[in-house]
């Protein structure tokens, strides 16, 4: 998915002093970080700290009140062709079968579906043969796999994932994390991942951004300098333990600050 024209040195996404207010309520205050090309960045933080608000602003669904979000140097003001979204709890349309759900983006944009790519993705996530199944008949993990296929179906260069596995049990969640890493290793999409789980953040990310709450602002950015793929062995190392504690400490600090 590399784009030869683009300047590889420039960050893929720039979150430049972004603030967001709803009336008098300030949800985000001068959030400032960038996401490099082909990087996975997780955003963690306490509930209600504005993670989802920030992600929706990055997707162009929300405007910002101050600052700017840029994709390849161009400000994002509305939903962008190059950005795929994965929602909480799959967000499949329950009246359509999997095929209908995955082709939904193409119906909206009026483009001709890339059937080979979709077939490849379905096989990749283990949903081959389930094209005619209704979402209600599938497990939560399968539904979320289908929603990942939907998000990737139009070849986005950025994938924004909003707590995609929060509703899944821990085993399914680990499988899904591995799947995301595999897909990323294969396609080198730039991924921004929101999660409550520090373990998930460390497993997936190149960097973890800790947001502090009310108003949401960047409290810390941790580099996750671990080899890939992140095997059980890597994840059981002392380094991971220390990283997770550091992030946990940062979030705890952010929470007490928010409570004051």
């Amino acid at each position: 998915m590399s784009e030869p024209k683009a300047d590889d040195q420039r960050p893929k996404l720039e979150i430049d002093k972004v603030s967001k207010a709803y009336g008098d309520f300030l949800a985000l205050r001068e959030c400032d970080f960038s996401v490099a090309r082909n990087e996975i960045v997780s955003i963690v933080g306490p509930s209600g700290c504005g993670k989802t608000t920030l992600l929706w602003s990055m997707s162009g669904l929300h405007g910002v009140s101050g600052g700017e979000i840029r994709l390849d140097g161009v400000p994002i003001t509305k939903p962008h062709r190059d950005i795929g979204l994965v929602f909480q709890e799959s967000n499949l349309l329950p009246w359509r079968n999997l095929r209908g759900n995955i082709l939904f983006p193409y119906e909206i944009t009026g483009e001709t579906p890339d059937h080979d790519w979709i077939a490849h993705l379905l096989e990749r996530v283990g949903l081959k043969g389930f094209e005619d199944a209704m979402p209600g008949a599938l497990s939560g993990g399968m539904q979320q796999r289908a929603s990942i296929v939907r998000a990737l179906s139009q070849h986005p260069s950025v994938l924004l994932m909003d707590e995609p596995f929060g509703a899944l049990d821990s085993f399914t969640r680990e499988d899904m994390n591995r799947l995301v890493e595999e897909i990323w290793l294969e396609s080198k999409t730039t991924i921004v991942f929101i999660t409550h789980s520090i373990e998930e953040a460390v497993f997936l990310s190149d960097r973890v951004v800790v947001l502090s709450g009310r108003p949401g602002s960047v409290a810390a950015i941790h580099d996750i300098d671990l080899p890939r793929p992140r095997t059980d062995e890597v994840m059981a190392s002392r380094q991971v333990f220390d990283l997770m504690n550091a992030i946990k400490g940062g979030i705890a600090g952010a929470r007490t600050k928010a409570a004051e």
Binding site: P79, N91, T109
Partner: peptide, 12 residues
Amino acid sequence: SAKIALARSYGA
């Protein structure tokens, strides 16, 4: 709202 956001994210 999530389903409407999904449609809007593709420019519906």
